[in-house]
Design a protein around this nucleic acid. Structure first.
Length: 241
DNA sequence: AAAATACTCAACCGCTTGGGT
DNA sequence: CACCCAAGCGGTTGAGTATTT
């Protein structure tokens, strides 16, 4: 469902991301943060442009990205905010935690826009009919639409990333061991100058203390911080057992 | 069963914005 | 003030999948 991978004239890889690339990007950002998107691919060992990396992280790899079906509340909120702000997808996304602007935009164009049109048509028809004194029509049409969307919502599968990549089935591991297994040898990939990482060491502090990186250089977003907190808890529980 | 059509969504492109010098 | 560059945003594209003919 995505563009086939290819190399452009500048030697940059484009198109669908492989599981390997996803892992490299995820591992790098979780460890070092995204301090500079244009430089990041070089250090992460990726032949991608920074823009592409940013997009992949923001729309797909971030741990807090919510995927799958939209609830009726979400749909209604999107419609409401879209009516107020227009196509300000990032502003709309800010009101829907976990949803990305790209995802909302796609959802709007594929589902909600259609629904809006139908509802507008229905109300128009309803108005005209009421003038000719057949008030039930509008209501009926609306209820048909509503039941259709309900049916669709019910029939849609549960949140399961449907990416092009084989990595779509990735789920955050229950243990740090399985995480390390899952990401293979990323800790030793090109960006990794040191080998000091261990399960008992959160790299954040060691990197700064070890002089690998200035504290100012680190740019962790909330997701990354959240992830580290989670990882720390997991490690502690592992140590306890 | 095969072909045509519609739907979906990840990824790209180009433009704008904002911060630094 | 002008310029540069990185980041962010919104529109569009392209190809896989689902549905219809």
């Amino acid at each position: 469902m995505v563009r086939a991978p290819f190399i452009d004239k500048n030697g940059m890889k484009k198109g669908a991301w492989s599981a390997d690339e996803d892992n490299k990007l995820r591992a790098y950002i979780l460890r070092y943060g995204h301090w500079n998107w244009s430089q990041l691919p070089k250090y992460a060992g990726l032949s991608r442009c920074g823009k592409s990396c940013r997009l992949r992280w923001m729309n797909y790899l971030r741990p807090t990205v919510k995927r799958g079906i939209y609830s009726k509340e979400e749909d209604d909120l999107i419609i409401k905010v879209q009516a107020e702000l227009g196509s300000k997808w990032s502003a709309i996304a800010a009101k829907l935690p976990g949803r990305t602007d790209n995802d909302i935009k796609n959802h709007w164009h594929t589902h909600l826009k259609k629904r809006m049109k139908q509802e507008q048509m229905a109300s128009l028809v309803g108005q005209q009919c009421s003038e000719i004194s057949v008030p039930e029509t509008n209501q009926n049409e609306q209820s048909i639409e509503t039941s259709e969307s309900e049916a669709r919502r019910n029939s849609e599968l549960t949140p399961e990333p449907s990416s092009s990549s084989e990595f779509s089935t990735f789920s955050w591991p229950a243990t740090t061991e399985s995480f390390a297994e899952g990401i293979g040898n990323f800790w030793t990939e090109p960006f990794l100058a040191d080998t000091s990482f261990s399960q008992n060491d959160i790299p954040l502090s060691s990197l700064v203390e070890g002089g690998f990186m200035s504290p100012d250089f680190l740019c962790y977003d909330d997701d990354t911080v959240l992830f580290y907190q989670l990882m720390q808890e997991l490690m502690e529980s592992n140590r306890d057992t």
